[in-house]
């Protein structure tokens, strides 16, 4: 170490490297997304405090207009308080998607890791994914319900099942790309075991797209749950969900539009908000 001059200890990072997720949520897109999603989530979480009525209690006021004393959003055809049905509906929805999406993500990632171990396993896993993807979501839903009967569990399973290939494929692609990067070769030459290369080096660099996918999947889950309840193969009545309330309101759309308005606005806010958050995350990660 004689002739070369020691370089100055590197410049401190110019901009504090803000975490991309936080930066995404702080962007305009992310803020609007949060502003749409957070009130809905809060309404669901605080449902027992906000409702004032039980969502299944019937009164003799049927199809009361919004603003009726005691019923802020009015009542449905059976005289149940619509505010209570809306917030409890949100609560039921959130409960389902908060369980189903992480379950689908987890299983999808496990399959992707499994596929990364050997080309033969990879082929098997990919064909299994093809099989699931070959069924349109609602056919899958009907098939599962036909076996298990309607209820909460089938909805969770259908959503999870539909999400497994999405997460599995995405992580598999990430692993395949990152595995060819020079740092992965460097880790192998450095003596790291295949499992360590995969978990310590490749996986942390391949997860970013999964975060975006979670936001996208939450949107899809809201749709699937709504569609299943709408078709009557979801959570059983009289338990309210957004899809169920919407389905119930259909015959009265001309006479009592306020009946459908609550769940419609809520689903729109959730889907739009989650999409905006997904897009914000995506942009930040790809920078």
């Amino acid at each position: 170490m004689t002739a070369i001059t020691l370089p100055a200890p590197g410049k401190p990072a110019r901009r504090s490297p803000r975490h991309p997720y936080r930066a995404a949520l702080a962007s305009a897109r992310g803020r609007v997304g949060l502003a749409l999603v957070l009130p809905v989530v809060l309404a669901g979480v605080l449902a027992p405090l906000l409702a004032g009525h039980s969502p299944t209690d019937q009164s003799d006021l049927s199809l009361a207009a919004p603003g009726t004393p005691g019923h802020l959003l009015g009542t449905d055809d059976l005289g149940r308080d619509l505010l209570a049905r809306l917030v409890y509906g949100i609560r039921a929805d959130l409960g389902i998607i908060a369980l189903a999406v992480p379950l689908g993500a987890l299983l999808g990632c496990l399959f992707a890791l499994l596929a990364a171990t050997h080309p033969a396993v990879d082929t098997a896993v990919q064909r299994a994914f093809d099989l699931v993807l070959a069924f349109p979501g609602l056919i899958l839903a009907l098939a599962v319900t036909a076996i298990l009967g309607p209820g909460r569990l089938p909805v969770v399973l259908v959503i999870a099942l539909a999400e497994i290939p999405a997460f599995g494929r995405l992580l598999r692609t990430g692993i395949l790309v990152e595995r060819e990067r020079e740092y992965a070769t460097a880790a192998r030459v450095g003596g790291a075991s295949p499992a360590r290369v995969l978990t310590r080096h490749i996986l942390p660099n391949a997860v970013d797209p999964l975060v975006v996918q979670i936001a996208v999947s939450l949107t899809v889950a809201v749709f699937i749950e709504g569609a299943m309840s709408f078709l009557g193969v979801g959570v059983r009545p009289p338990q309210p969900t957004l899809g169920a309330v919407l389905s119930q309101s259909m015959p009265y759309l001309a006479d009592a539009p306020h009946f459908a308005a609550g769940p419609l606005i809520t689903v729109t806010a959730l889907v739009l908000g989650l999409s905006l958050i997904a897009e914000a995350l995506n942009r930040e990660i790809r920078r």
Partner: peptide, 10 residues
């Protein structure tokens, strides 16, 4: 390795 950007795990 050749590429000092790609060969270090970010």
């Amino acid at each position: 390795f050749q590429d000092p950007y790609a060969s270090l795990n970010p």
